[in-house]
Design a binder for these strands. Sequence first.
DNA 1: CTCCATCGAGACGCTAGCGTATCGATAAAT
DNA 2: ATTTATCGATACGCTAGCGTCTCGATGGAG
Lengths: 192, 192
Amino acid sequence: MTTTGAAVGRGQHARRRVLSAALEVLTEVGMPGFTMESVARRAGASKATLYRHWSSPSALLVDAMDAEFRPSPDLDTGDLRADLVTLLTGLATGLTGSRFPTLMAAFTDAAERDPTLADLHAELTRRRREPLLRLLATAVGRGELPADTDTELVVDLLAAPFFYRRLIAHHAIPSAMPGAVVDHVLPSLGGG
Amino acid sequence: MTTTGAAVGRGQHARRRVLSAALEVLTEVGMPGFTMESVARRAGASKATLYRHWSSPSALLVDAMDAEFRPSPDLDTGDLRADLVTLLTGLATGLTGSRFPTLMAAFTDAAERDPTLADLHAELTRRRREPLLRLLATAVGRGELPADTDTELVVDLLAAPFFYRRLIAHHAIPSAMPGAVVDHVLPSLGGG
DNA sequence: CTCCATCGAGACGCTAGCGTATCGATAAAT
DNA sequence: ATTTATCGATACGCTAGCGTCTCGATGGAG
């Protein structure tokens, strides 16, 4: 009984500082500069502390990315189109002016060569898709969309263009884009 | 008049070997391992030769990626849906079982922190989109699609899901996906 | 208040890449 | 056949990160 379980303790503070520093470093210099040394420096932590908690840079990266994840709140006003636009606008905002896209690019590259990171990448993506997916499932449930709607594919169609524009095409994301994307995808679903 | 202009010469052979080796290295170890040393080793070339041609790793990377680009042939059978499915199937194939997606991930990450690479990335993407874009423009021209069709956005809607599935969601790309994507996007265009 | 687990700092030998310089070898041009 | 630019190889000193280790400091638990 040395710990109360809920207590935070000194170790947790160090841990949190390191995780935060890891994302800063990864954003700024990408995988090439993501070293235990530089993360420790940024965190004001000792290398020994890092190795005490994480056996490798990729183990550290897994924890850091997992801690970064913030689920977007569910919403369902009953107006499917408006709700979709709201969620996609949130995505567009996250992809503009935050470190999120740069982090995504670094993590996507790293995941190409590290199965553990690939699994986490897939899992974080799955979680990020959930609100959109639930919104569509609800619409299917109340008959607003056909019962045989491929909701996974629809989520791909709705979300992918934003990532593509920002990370691959290097184009701006106009504020009208969420509405335009929804209007291009919804009609083909032939819902009533 | 020491050169004939069309002659290849020893230098060009060395140059080509290095560019090819650069892409191999980048695919296998990503940006973290993309060093002048390792590329020279892989190419069986001297470091001096690399520095003679390229002042930095990113200059080398720019040339290598530019040389890798292969434009897909134009096609227009008159059957818009079939042509779109053909092009998207080609994209899906390129994203499965070749080094292309891994190269894309590495390059995308690098482009986040290097404006020169970002420009080239945008340019290569623009070139890759051209066949799809021309196909849509032709369909607009002959009245098969409305004159006010946002062809750039439609290209995004058609192509983005494939990149997203392979690089971000880490899901398989079913062989029926190109047809399904086209069928979800075309109807909303309301063409006659 | 005392104890002690954890902390930050940093030394250690090691490896790897950096960018430059200097070789003889070699292949294209005269 | 001779010239000449480019080649591959390799040595050089330098920096940076590796993973381990030993310190004295410090703050939370009992």
